[in-house]
Design a protein around this nucleic acid. Structure first.
Lengths: 219, 219
DNA sequence: CCAAAAGTGTTGGCGTTACACCCATGG
DNA sequence: CCATGGGTGTAACGCCAACACTTTTGG
């Protein structure tokens, strides 16, 4: 069988939480094919470029520095008819951006009501949402949505959005603190007419990464 | 940036359980590079060939008909220096073969003591083992190791190998039956001087697939 | 002094684990 | 009749979910 060669792409589902909603960053395509349609941000992988570097490159173009951004490979698509430009391989990733990230050329859309997307990107998005929601049940990945420092109420709000239900405040706090991945800062946040909230940051990345499995929800 | 094109491969970790041990099917390479070394079975994806078809093709070459074999995409590797033949993309899969499967040109090795492998295949194998063991904790994927019909003791043995610990017989049976994915056959298995064992088969594939999440071990 | 979010402990119920003996058969 | 693996029920424990009030601040 002749050795078929294909271009290699990365397509990235960039999540953020805004307005108590899970949102995804989308591009409006300026060129054919699918001109005018929405798509996920992505790009071709260059010669000699490691694939994860390409994913981080896309991420960086979209949301600035990315050292700290959580990025995970999702799934690889390579249906022959997936792209009208010809056969190619699309490796998808998902990323968890903090709320403060702005994008120069993309727009955030509510993930649940995203428009239908170009190419196979609906499939990618579906998988991304599913994976993220699954991780919310047993991991601390959702902490990556937060700009530091943050309050425990902020953390709870993130989990509530992802799990799509309300959680008990006392149970949530007890379990989250028991994971020992948060560290109190010296400050409190004062916003409005109520008791100030203790601020936290992620404790050392190392510890934090080790704990990215092993929570048991529901709270 | 010039559009770099690469060949596309699939590499498959084919698991089976034999002699109460998790085993992997390996090839001994007959050609350079890595001539004489062990590697995972794999092959290049043909033009116009969907990638999962390619994975099933490899599987079929190795173990005969494969309609029923559980196959799941694992991870995609595309480091520029991964393969001395040049840049390529390797999409890895893992498969769960029943004990009765024989391979014409591969050999089963104990997964824990596998030799070191060619290319990036050590990484693939590591990921495959990890994924499989994880699935043993909350899914019924391990049932796919069994030739039908099978006894509950057979099922327990599979889970014990994967989880690497002994399980309580009564608790195991209760939970497994509660999942409602097994169906009694009319027959019993008579082997040796003891009470015959009730035989089971997987209940309709549909139901079975729906249940592939949501068990909570330990038993 | 009022409103609004932060913060804090205890208990009952349920699910999980732990555990030991009888059954059916072949030799 | 003995050895072997198959098959079965219950009780104690520990963990999780449920639940309401006090604190601190700004206006």
């Amino acid at each position: 069988m002749a050795l078929a060669k294909r271009p290699l792409r990365v397509d990235v589902v960039i999540f953020a939480i805004r307005d108590k909603t899970l949102q995804v960053l989308l591009w409006k395509r300026a060129e054919a094919p699918f001109r005018g349609a929405w798509s996920l941000p992505g790009g071709f992988v260059g010669k000699d470029e490691p694939i994860e570097d390409a994913a981080r490159r896309v991420l960086e173009e979209e949301t600035g520095f990315t050292e700290e951004v959580y990025l995970e490979q999702l799934y690889t698509f390579a249906h022959p008819k997936m792209d009208p430009r010809g056969e190619l391989v699309s490796v998808s990733y998902y990323a968890v951006a903090t709320t403060s990230r702005e994008s120069p050329d993309g727009t955030f859309h509510a993930a649940r009501r995203a428009p239908s997307l170009a190419f196979h990107h609906d499939d990618v998005l579906r998988r991304g949402i599913h994976r993220l929601r699954t991780k919310a049940e047993y991991s601390t990945v959702p902490l990556r949505f937060l700009d530091e420092p943050f309050t425990l109420s902020d953390v709870q709000a993130v989990y509530e959005v992802l799990l799509d239900r309300n959680l008990d405040k006392r149970n949530f706090r007890r379990k989250m603190l028991a994971l020992d991945v948060l560290e109190e800062t010296q400050e409190k946040r004062r916003t409005g007419a109520h008791r100030p909230a203790q601020l936290y940051r992620l404790s050392s990345r190392r510890t934090y990464l080790l704990k990215e499995r092993g929570i048991l929800f529901p709270f």
